[in-house]
Write a protein that binds this DNA or RNA. Structure first.
Length: 270
DNA sequence: AAGAGACCCTGGATGC
DNA sequence: TGCATCCAGGGTCTCT
């Protein structure tokens, strides 16, 4: 599932070749992938436009266009954006095809159909509700310590709340809490400044390592060139229920917190 | 503020 | 074997 590191790897990959490419035509194979505007308007608004810089905000791929508009893509669970030779036949899960003037086309594929495309002149209407970027300057240990005050929810669901902090999903929330030695059910407000500092460092470490390993591929995820990531070889708790904790040897447990699976070591995470 | 549940979907796993 | 059902997952929405 694409979370911040996977989206970052995809955005960097696209930014290496997409800027300057002109969109000649758009095929919408599953129009409901477009969140806004209406499908016909989406196609008309993109046709003839040239891509500029490609970046990321939270879990959104952000693609600037030469007329000031922005194309946002949220990959949700199974979405992917990749380059394919022009004229290549769409696969069974291709939902949108961007025919470019060059030798390659841009494909949006999405098995689960949860991913969404947004074309807008007002980026704020898409991303203004997002919390700070965990790898950005706004996200400091001090900010986290203060932000946790008065929050009576459990820390794991709070890390998944995109309005609190942007880009963390289930895998990296579990991994960061393990690295910080914090139980996912801890009430956010109960963390000491020291614990908040550990969590801050753990979040950065987990995300940066995953980017360096080009993301976590458990099933669907591929980067913009169709390659698998390597970070799945380094997960310490996610998907490892029953396996020994690499720190203490006790079996990793899986439970449900806030209607999401949570993996943790019952001895190392307090 | 917090949390439960529904919804959107598919394919792999499980149950009968 | 073949079919039905369950479940995971991110985000948004409604309801309590």
């Amino acid at each position: 599932m694409p979370e911040l590191p996977e989206v970052e790897v995809i955005a960097r990959g696209l930014d290496g070749w997409l800027p300057g490419q002109r969109i000649q035509a758009v095929d919408l194979l599953w129009p409901r992938s477009v969140a806004l505007p209406a499908a016909a308007e989406f196609i008309a608004g993109l046709t003839g436009r040239r891509f500029e810089r490609v970046g990321r905000r939270g879990k959104f791929v952000q693609m600037a266009l030469d007329n000031g508009a922005t194309l946002f893509v949220h990959l949700r669970m199974s979405g992917s954006l990749y380059r394919a030779p022009a004229g290549a036949p769409p696969g069974p899960h291709t939902r949108a095809l961007f025919h470019l003037a060059g030798p390659c086309d841009l494909y949006f594929a999405d098995t689960r159909k949860f991913g969404r495309l947004y074309l807008t002149y007002e980026p704020a209407e898409i991303v203004s509700r997002l919390g700070p970027e965990p790898l950005g300057d706004d996200f400091s240990a001090g900010w986290l310590t203060t932000a946790l005050r008065g929050r009576r929810t459990r820390i794991k669901p709070l890390l998944l709340d995109q309005t609190f902090i942007a880009g963390i999903g289930n895998i990296y929330a579990d991994e960061a809490l393990f690295l910080a030695g914090l139980h996912p059910s801890r009430v956010a407000d109960s963390l000491s400044a020291g614990e908040a500092g550990r969590l801050h460092a753990a979040i950065r470490e987990v995300l940066q390592s995953a980017i360096a390993r080009r993301g976590t591929t458990l099933s669907d995820y591929r980067d913009a060139e169709g390659e698998r990531g390597q970070n799945q070889e380094f997960l310490r708790v996610y998907g490892r229920a029953g396996w020994p904790c690499e720190r203490c040897g006790r079996p990793i447990e899986r439970t449900v917190i806030g209607q999401r699976s949570a993996h943790f070591c019952p001895a190392c995470q307090i």
